[in-house]
Design a protein around this nucleic acid. Sequence first.
DNA 1: GCGACAG
DNA 2: ATCTTGTCGC
Length: 216
Amino acid sequence: MHSWNLSPAEAIALQKELRTHLILSDQLGIVRRVAGVDVGFETGGMITRAAVAVLCYPELDVLETAIARRPTEFPYIPGLLSFRELPAVLDALEQLHELPDLLLCDGQGIAHPRRFGIASHLGLLVDIPSIGVAKTRLCGTHDTLPDPRGAWTPLRANHEIIGAVLRTRPGVKPLYLSPGHRISLETAITYVMACCTRYRLPETTRHAHRLASEPQ
DNA sequence: GCGACAG
DNA sequence: ATCTTGTCGC
């Protein structure tokens, strides 16, 4: 149902056009439903499996989940991840009976070479506030991060702040988060911390990841 | 030209 | 991401 079949060069051109429509200020209502989005692969990469887990906020109990499978049709190219994973994610989102108020995606938001990572791409396409929550850095530089939970330092690139490096657990590798669409960096940090209760990753992401990579 | 490089 | 077992540490 969703596929773009674009060349890498066309995908880059599309990112440059779409990024001009991003809103990087808070444009969210009361958040009652937060969704975690993640993708896994089956058959050695032949099949892409996307999973969405919707949790109530701030309680963080699972309300609804969805899984979608599609043949994988775009290679993994740093900077073009959304073209590989979003077709399946969009299929999964359409299965939900009620759309979430906020999306937490595995990967970058605007902390991306063209300021248009997968979280930004998804948020813009479905017009839902989104945050990119990555386990590692794609681009940008930052100072050393203090150890206490909640500590954060800006992620910078070309004199601009593109995200934050956030310590969600003491003594554990930090998270790289950035606004996707319709949310500010400060608000994004607040929501991500609120979703990280006992582990490094947000509860939303943990549920989605389990659904996306669990056997069967 | 030489690295870096989300998942 | 995925291929894969045990192992170090709280």
